[in-house]
Nucleic acid binder design. Sequence first.
DNA 1: TATAATCCGGTAAGCGCTTACCGGTAAGCG
DNA 2: CGCTTACCGGTAAGCGCTTACCGGATTATA
Lengths: 365, 365
Amino acid sequence: MAEPKKAKGTLTIYDVANRAGVSIASVSRVLNGQGSPRAETRDRVMRAVRELSFVRDGAARALSNGLKEVVGVVFRRGGEELFEGEDESFLFIDVINRGIEVGAQRRGFDLLISSVGFNDDNVAARIAALAGKADGLILHDRMLSTVGIARLADMVPVVTLAGSPTPASLNVRCDNGSGIRALVRHLVLDHGYRSLGYVSGRADSPDNRTRSRAFENEAAAVGATIDTGPAWQGNYSAAGGANVIETLLDSRKKLPRAILCANDQTALGVIHALAQRGIKVPQDVAITGFDDVPVARHLHPPLTTIRQPMKELGAKAFDVLYSRISAGGGKADTVLPVELIVRESCGCPPGSSPPQNPSPAGAGT
Amino acid sequence: MAEPKKAKGTLTIYDVANRAGVSIASVSRVLNGQGSPRAETRDRVMRAVRELSFVRDGAARALSNGLKEVVGVVFRRGGEELFEGEDESFLFIDVINRGIEVGAQRRGFDLLISSVGFNDDNVAARIAALAGKADGLILHDRMLSTVGIARLADMVPVVTLAGSPTPASLNVRCDNGSGIRALVRHLVLDHGYRSLGYVSGRADSPDNRTRSRAFENEAAAVGATIDTGPAWQGNYSAAGGANVIETLLDSRKKLPRAILCANDQTALGVIHALAQRGIKVPQDVAITGFDDVPVARHLHPPLTTIRQPMKELGAKAFDVLYSRISAGGGKADTVLPVELIVRESCGCPPGSSPPQNPSPAGAGT
DNA sequence: TATAATCCGGTAAGCGCTTACCGGTAAGCG
DNA sequence: CGCTTACCGGTAAGCGCTTACCGGATTATA
């Protein structure tokens, strides 16, 4: 009586209906809270469900409802050396995914995740497979080429993160441009530095292109001179940052008074390389990062950087995707504001207050 | 012609069949590689699929095949302060999940993940919802009570991680007992320490109970005296470890010659607290950890600990689940060997070789 | 008490796919 | 050249669920 029927094969709504002595329609209605079943009917159904440990099959529900309540998330895995520090990036991915999940849970969606190695070949195939199992897809940075995204968006609603919208896909990103502009203004307007440099990220990252361009434009706007060229090409890693500095120094170039870095990791490498050569930060050269990773505040000196609302990014991405899924709409490009975090690597004294220059992060287009 | 039909509503196999001028059966067969279609048939289908950007609906396939090719993964999120260091644990979760994914991908499965906050209320409901969307579930440590697991396993195949099997659910774990035993033997047999202590983890963790018990048993087996009691109760955190030491010291107890810690985080706190009181590791007290987190090797002194094959754990969990799903079988309890990592916190000299005592980690039951 | 309005709950169709079954055509054989 | 054997590919059933539609029972209204 406690264990009435030892689940032979699959348990269906018919089994529940039988046990409860009602029709499958009633079972379905009770389970969905539709209609107004008689109290007794409801009770009998609920009891049968409980006694049988019944769970509705998601596939059948999805087929009938035309909604799977599943969102696919695709991202790149760092190499296999997950244990070798440096992998802050995957932490961000995790935070963003968490944000997506928060948004998703509000709508009863779950996350179907698929990570792709840097050298996986059949990425497109894997993503297509995912597409079939989800109502829509969220793609992290640098997952697919623009045409790849466009093609994918033909099959299923797609939201990209930190990219740019295509005719069929939506995009959500943080306001990288504003972040860089805020940094430039702080360095030039508040500190009076006249010469700047920018250690860039991977050349193939849209994010990086945005940052580079904002750097050049804003520097020109505030009348600072900038040092550029292939020597400034980093790759988002500490080693890349250190390498840029060493190359620069070896070529006996004079370093600019302030150097912006594409991300905190890069800044870390830059600061380290500078220290090796006996160059003081921020006395000789001011440094800024981007991202505000956990260790940023513990660097020597504590790193002035830009904080991106990662979790909100994920949540927003889901919301946008959801509106596309349910209504077919959705804003093509959503931009989230970033926050300037002033610490000491820019030359500000410990415990300093926010910058004084007009309109810090968040302004501008 | 390039963009033939602007996907009105949902694209189905009928649309493909129409366009290719064949029947839906042929389309399905081509897409599944079943039967031996004529070359021309195959080509026409493939072309139509390409031109329409068609993807088969996963829900319909799942319903028809009785297989969703989705595995649900449930785990606990650390608090919301993801940015406050200390959260190594979620890193492990991530590595394990990665392992699950590796296993899953071999079978064309994807991961449906659902994380649960420490104070979420409707955990059971959320998990049940997941169950409907997946072919089986993998539960990380401490997700559900034993009866909760048993009930869940009534609805869907369940594999627990680092727990213990129930009549209906399977379990995969690392050989914690062996790890602790190897540590005890190393400390007692190789170093000659006669008195030991064990700073435990959360009381509600099955893993912790296993470790505690192994500690007591093995210590007795090799004839070492042990110090126990509520004062030794930690909670897997550095703060917890430090707290245990402070309490112990404040009560003017004499510390044992060697202290095993429930995990590396705890060891970290313990070493820190010891240093604060001027007690030297390993000269005055030897310390060991468990897990081998990334920082373990960078501690002062480098931490002797146990490495668990996290990724293999995940992959194995999937394999076990898969065999249960497909064949109904599956080993009830799978135990993976762990590895003793000897560094300096136990008293070994830098760059020392593996321990000499007979049968290190991996032996015993 | 007869009739209309209301309310429940059952029957059956259909979601998009896979596949058993079967008929038609081409190839093999005597 | 006629019959058997293969081989393709089409038709239709069914996977488990939701829900439109409808009929019977109940209650309200006259």
